[in-house]
Design a protein around this nucleic acid. Structure first.
Lengths: 343, 343
DNA sequence: ACACAGGGCTAAATCGATTGAGCGTTTTAT
DNA sequence: ATAAAACGCTCAATCGATTTAGCCCTGTGT
């Protein structure tokens, strides 16, 4: 029950714990341990199924082989999926993951960082909240690798892995225009975080490129804190008043509320009102008509996050790795003016 | 950067680390440390924002204040939601959570247990896979608290938190009957795990109670491994052949495939074919018509899991705590024969 | 006055792994 | 021939907190 320690191996091999440590850490050559002894130790370690005690090791080396994953909400589809990939990838490198959700609340985020800090995690994967700049800088100070995800902080030079929100929004909007929609609107949040700003910019660029007439009614902003009923009411009201024929929803949940709103007006999605949404969701794929969306490469996001983190853990680079992945436009039925037969 | 240690406090207070440790662990009285010294130490600890190094503490005590959470799939809605509650609750007790997904694969599950073991987690929350009996027994041997979730192993005496699958299925089936559906079928998995068996039993009990005519066509079983296309094809074929007027889907994903299948047959959900599904999903709530389902009390499940675990961590009880929570039937449009206006 | 009983605190061992310094012996270089 | 280098390995300190054993001092009882 005690678990096999390095001492047990040393005893069986008739050598000192030091030697065992050297061999097990691949320093046999460097430390001039004979092949005979090396082999013997390895064999015994295998036989005993020795696993180093990570606590002891961590105490001595300061490395815990643990990563801290701070997401906005682990119960959210996108983050849960990324979390899974991250866990898988980290595992390949012998790392485990401690996670936590911020609910986009700076206080909670701060608390999580505190805990992870005195748990001595080796690296951080963070979906930053507002005003987190100093904390990220602090982690950089103490040379803890940090990779931001989903969004980054414009005035902090850090590693990050995000998608090209601008391009995604641009492509989605262009698609709507090419499908023949004329009065296109964007429904977004009041947030000024970078990812939202870029989606807005991408939308506007496509909008203006095609010379669509702009007035302030083209943009509808809704506060994140508003509840479900509030959202659908506002969207419904807006759709009724503005008589748009297509909408670009800047987030997942806005799209969902949008579906409800469009339906409640008795309008047909696609035929009467086209729609595209940023970020995919089971619901969009399975809905009838299915919903066109800008899909984020979740697998790749997760892989790259861990990839960047591992590089930093091995030898910190001087320049920040800032990866902008391309999302893909998933064309579905919600952007088709002709009614298609249900597949 | 080094972090405040117990020695720093000792130095400032002019006492030994031992004394500091006693005071900080609330053993001041027991160890007869004077109030003066106690207060002084506490004050300094606060001022310095001392946080014990969990590694050192863990090395000495064997307690890491970390829980291992092994779920079937962290990217799955249900598990992700439970995970979130678990994390929150654990945090209240000063515990952090290491997670992992099994994909219902015994090999992966075994690997996860290995890692968590030599990471010295204090307790385990496990969604067991087949043939995990010995491993659970082993953990019991070494007195590591384990709480199973979602399902349990019938021939292992362990703690667990599950929902009343039988009642849930019984209520759902009864509801279908009371809504006037006559030819009711169950579509379930080929799995013989306990939760599936109970759902089947609950269905059959309601079915027979109301004297519905039984023949083997009432039950359709589909293998878990089958892909999406296979599932929808099989379900579609079955629905066409059996001419049922309502279906009880025994899981989440079967219900989703079911929606697709029913639609592809040009049938109206609710009006032509009633449906109920075990387990809720965003899609069911937002689908139109919305889907009646048996909803699991996720908050409560998460809370109770941690609750049981904490009790065990504090003082192991001799009897197993086996909680069976009641699910609730969420009646929605998919079990209404009359077509309702979309809300 | 002397033993004995607390009271108030500390020294040192311990958990398991890592690592800088170093110790004998043999080989190589000069 | 003799110092220096190469070998092959080990000692002991260290990480930070916990915990057992015990030291010294004061007060009490007889």
């Amino acid at each position: 029950m005690k678990g096999i320690s390095i001492k047990d191996i040393a005893k069986q091999a008739g050598v000192s714990p030091t030697t065992v440590s050297f061999v097990l850490n691949g320093k046999a050559k460097e430390k001039r341990i004979s092949d005979q002894v090396s082999k013997k130790i390895l064999k015994i370690a295998n036989k005993l199924k020795y696993k180093p005690n990570q606590l002891a090791r961590g105490l001595r080396t300061g490395k815990t082989k643990t990563l801290g994953l701070i997401v906005e909400d682990i119960a959210n589809n996108f983050f849960a999926n990324v979390a899974k990939v991250v866990e898988d990838e980290a595992d390949k490198h012998g790392y485990k993951v401690l996670y936590g959700s911020t609910e986009d609340n700076s206080e909670k985020a701060h608390g999580l960082l505190e805990v992870l800090k005195y748990r001595q995690v080796d690296g951080y994967i963070i979906t930053p909240t507002k005003g987190m700049e100093k904390e990220i800088e602090l982690l950089k100070m103490v040379r803890k690798p940090v990779v931001l995800m989903d969004r980054y902080l414009p005035n902090v030079d850090s590693h990050y892995v995000v998608v090209d929100n601008y391009q995604g929004a641009y492509a989605a909007t262009t698609h709507l225009i090419e499908q023949g929609y004329q009065k296109i609107a964007i429904i977004t949040t009041t947030s000024d975080q970078v990812q939202m700003k870029q989606r807005m910019d991408g939308f506007m660029a496509a909008f203006k490129k095609h010379g669509l007439p702009y007035n302030k009614n083209v943009v509808k902003r809704l506060p994140f804190e508003m509840d479900r009923v509030g959202h659908t009411q506002e969207i419904t009201k807006y759709l009724k008043a503005s008589k748009v024929d297509a909408v670009f929803f800047a987030t997942n949940y806005l799209g969902i509320y949008g579906i409800e709103s469009i339906r409640s007006l008795g309008l047909r999605i696609g035929a009467d009102v086209g729609m595209v949404c940023f970020d995919d969701h089971d619901l969009f794929r399975l809905h009838s008509p299915s919903i066109t969306c800008v899909s984020q490469p979740i697998e790749e996001i997760g892989r790259q996050i861990v990839n960047v983190l591992m590089k930093e853990l091995n030898h910190a680079s001087s320049t920040s790795q800032q990866l902008v992945l391309q999302p893909t436009l998933e064309v579905r039925q919600s952007t088709m003016k002709e009614v298609e037969p249900v597949a």
